[in-house]
Structure formats: structure tokens, C-alpha cells
């Protein structure tokens, strides 16, 4: 039996997906801004953050409304609980994108940086992983969610490489430019995006299987 309030649950899902797509867009755009030193793009990304924040609040309100009024059970409860976390992670991803945009503008203020180390590669993987996490949610695909957990390590590795490239190459901290420090923060932010994607994937696994795999390793 289809109940009329099930429509609202679909609405909630749609809102989450919308949030996800926004965050992914922001990540992609901010990477482009970093690579091309495009300040206007970076500014645009910073402006998009508010929209995601609004979406998060709306998702939270919908969750609360659903919980109070419609007495959800089973997978609906898991979806609602996970939606809260997913919404939070997506909002954090948007925040990280916004942070990257800020750093990118700082870098471009000091003149374009020739060597972006492994950041573009890391960014591509971060976007791929986020895409994968979103797809696993949209499609309810357990395999994709598990793939996210594996691929997160690639981002961590690239992030570490960025450190080593910068500090290992010179061996001399004084030679590291301020722009490079910003780059390290960007790398770190991308790594955080990867972590949030992983969290989303964990929540998807929770929705689909009811299995709580957080802090498993």
C-alpha cells in the first residue's frame, strides 16, 4: 500500500540528491578555479554555499516533520537518520569547497602558482569518489558504496604525497612559499571531502543493509 506521506519521503530524497549535486558542482568548479587561477569562479563557488546551507536546513525540517507526524518504521527510519548525517556531510563538503575557493583566491592574489603538486589529481579523485558516493545513494548501490570506502585511501595517499613533495623536496621550510602552504590546506580540504564522501557511503550502507560500519577499522 502506498501512503500519501510516502511522497514526502521521496521529496526528502530529492532534496538530498539536489544538495549532493550542488556540493559536487562546487567541488568541480573550485578545482577549476584553483587550476586556472579563476577568481570569479572561486567567488561564484563561495556564493553557492548559502544555497546548500538552506537546503540542509530544509532537509532537517523535513526529517523532523516526517518523524513527528508519520511515525516511520524500518528502512524509513534508517533513511531519515542517515539523511540527517548525509545532509550534514554534504553541507561540510560545500563548506570545504568554499574554503578551497578562499585559499584559491589567496594564491591567485600572490600570483599564479606553477606547480600545483598532486592537487589536480587529488581533486579529480575526490570528485570521482563524491560522485560515486552520491550514485550509491541515488541508485541504492551497495557495491558503489563499498568502492567509495576503498578509494578514499587514494585521496589520503595523494594528500600525503603533497606534504612529502613540498617538505621532502627542499628539506628547508624557509623555501616553502606562502602559496604552497595554501595549497597544502587545499589538499587537506580535498582529503576532508574524501572523508565526508566516505561517511556518506557508510550511511548509504546503513540505509541499505542496516549495518553500522563506522569506526570499523
Amino acid at each position: 500500500m502506498q501512503r500519501h506521506f510516502h511522497d514526502e519521503l521521496r521529496q526528502l530524497r530529492d532534496d538530498l540528491i539536489l544538495m549532493g549535486e550542488r556540493s559536487l558542482d562546487m567541488t568541480r568548479m573550485v578545482l577549476q578555479a584553483v587550476e586556472q587561477g579563476d577568481d570569479s569562479l572561486a567567488l561564484q563557488v563561495r556564493g553557492m554555499d548559502d544555497r546548500v546551507d538552506d537546503l540542509e536546513k530544509r532537509v532537517d525540517r523535513e526529517i523532523m516533520r516526517y518523524l513527528t507526524l508519520f511515525g516511520p518504521m524500518g528502512s524509513d527510519v534508517r533513511l531519515l537518520l542517515a539523511a540527517r548525517d548525509i545532509g550534514h556531510d554534504l553541507e561540510r563538503i560545500a563548506d570545504e569547497a568554499s574554503v578551497i575557493a578562499k585559499r584559491a583566491m589567496v594564491i591567485s592574489e600572490r600570483g599564479p602558482l606553477k606547480d600545483l603538486l598532486h592537487v589536480p589529481a587529488e581533486g579529480i579523485i575526490a570528485c570521482e569518489v563524491l560522485r560515486l558516493a552520491l550514485d550509491s545513494f541515488i541508485e541504492g548501490d551497495l557495491a558503489k558504496a563499498r568502492l567509495v570506502l576503498e578509494r578514499d585511501a587514494e585521496i589520503d595517499a595523494l594528500n600525503r604525497k603533497n606534504y612529502e613533495a613540498l617538505f621532502g623536496r627542499s628539506g628547508d621550510a624557509a623555501k616553502v612559499s606562502a602559496s604552497h602552504v595554501e595549497l597544502i590546506f587545499i589538499s587537506k580540504a580535498l582529503e576532508r571531502i574524501g572523508d565526508h564522501s566516505k561517511n556518506i557511503a557508510e550511511q548509504v550502507i546503513f540505509i541499505l543493509s542496516g549495518e553500522d560500519i563506522r569506526h570499523a577499522r
Binding site: 511522497d7 514526502e8 521529496q11 540528491i17 523535513e62
Partner: peptide, 15 residues
């Protein structure tokens, strides 16, 4: 982008 991406009006008043 999926169709659901289109920003819709507030749906809190679901009725």
C-alpha cells in the same frame, strides 16, 4: 544533471 536538480518551490506545505 538529473531533473530533480531544478530548484522547486518550498515543499514544506506538502498538501
Amino acid at each position: 544533471m538529473p531533473a530533480t536538480m531544478n530548484p522547486t518551490t518550498s515543499r514544506i506545505q506538502v498538501r
